[in-house]
């Protein structure tokens, strides 16, 4: 948990405030109304599928929205690699440029 160094203030309200600020900034942005994740997922999968066939169930898209940038992780499990499944991980940072 982060606190802002106001002496010994230890209430939970500052945490609530910070969480809401990050969330609402995102929800007010055009991103929250776009299908960005859906589009990214489809396009990334299409690229990978040109080379290997992947099961759509084995794709995990994860996001962690921060206050200045958000982190997107696309985790694709690819079968038939020499030693079991290979995991391909793509990280992308986005939002930053546009949201700020």
């Amino acid at each position: 948990m982060r606190f802002f160094g106001f002496g010994r203030r230890r209430g939970s309200a500052p945490v609530a405030r910070e969480r809401l600020q990050i969330l609402l900034e995102y929800e007010r942005s055009p991103f929250s109304h776009s299908d960005l994740f859906t589009v990214l997922q489809e396009e990334i999968l299409a690229v990978i599928n040109r080379h290997v066939t992947v099961d759509a169930d084995k794709v995990q898209v994860k996001v962690d929205r921060g206050d200045t940038v958000s982190r997107l992780a696309v985790d694709v499990e690819i079968p038939n690699a020499p030693s079991g499944a290979m995991s391909l991980r793509l990280h992308e940072e986005f939002f930053g440029a546009v949201a700020r």
Binding site: R19, T38, Q41, V59, V61, V63, R65
Partner: peptide, 26 residues
């Protein structure tokens, strides 16, 4: 999502699943 502290991690939701845009595990 807020009560569970997962609000920063939402990618897909119930409606995406219902509409077949995302799989349930996603």
């Amino acid at each position: 999502d807020l009560m569970m502290g997962a609000e920063r991690r939402v990618v897909f939701d119930l409606i995406h699943v219902v509409q077949g845009i995302a799989r349930l595990p996603q």
